[in-house]
Computed example of a mutant assay.
Amino acid sequence: MKFMRVARLDDTDEHVYENAARVGEPAVPGSFVFTFSDRDPTLFEGKEKQAFRHGFLGTRSFGWATVVVVDDIEEGEYKSVIESLAHHFVSEYGAPSMEAALPVARQEAEYAAGLCEHEVNTLLAVERAADEDGIHEAFKTVQPRADWEGEGQPVRVWDFFRDE
């Protein structure tokens, strides 16, 4: 089965999120964090706003990541993701029991797996917005451009230049 794993292109996540997810850990979209909140996402600022707008949630650290990669996952690890999410629902969101939390956790994991109908190693990004109708998500694949040929060197997506 395919599932999302946290990926990093650089160390930006360490700076833009209060808690950055760890590279390689399984991830889910994590919109439940904002759905379960009593706060209006349109009023978020700073790191919280960044997590809302562009974050995937790691299922071990419960930190945020800007991109994930489609990867294969073993059945045992997939079950571990569901259990980890269920524990999180009980400890952080007041689910009354693991038995009550497991179906919701399973639904979140199934949703994440359903977004992975791409080739392994495909990068995914998310854009989230909120309005009076609720939270809306759009998922995008990040494709390398044909002109990103590295010619024996690492491919650089951007370069840094000094201001004159």
Rank of each mutant, 00 (worst) to 15 (best):
M1A: 08
V6I: 13
A7H: 14
R8D: 02
T12G: 01
D13S: 07
H15K: 14
N19I: 14
A20K: 09
A20V: 08
P26L: 06
V28F: 04
V28T: 14
G30Q: 08
S31K: 14
T35G: 05
D38M: 06
P41K: 10
E45I: 07
K47D: 04
K49P: 08
K49W: 02
K49A: 15
L57K: 03
R60N: 01
T66K: 10
V69T: 03
V70P: 07
D71F: 00
E74V: 10
E74M: 13
G76R: 05
G76I: 10
G76K: 15
K79I: 08
I82D: 04
V90W: 09
S91R: 10
S91L: 11
E92F: 11
A101M: 05
A105Y: 10
E108L: 12
A112V: 04
A113R: 15
C116D: 01
E119A: 14
A125L: 01
E127S: 13
R128E: 09
A130S: 13
D133N: 11
D133V: 14
H136A: 12
A138T: 05
F139R: 09
K140L: 15
Q143W: 15
Q143E: 07
W148Y: 09
W148V: 07
E149P: 02
G152D: 14
Q153M: 08
P154T: 07
V155R: 11
R156K: 15
E164Q: 04
E164C: 07
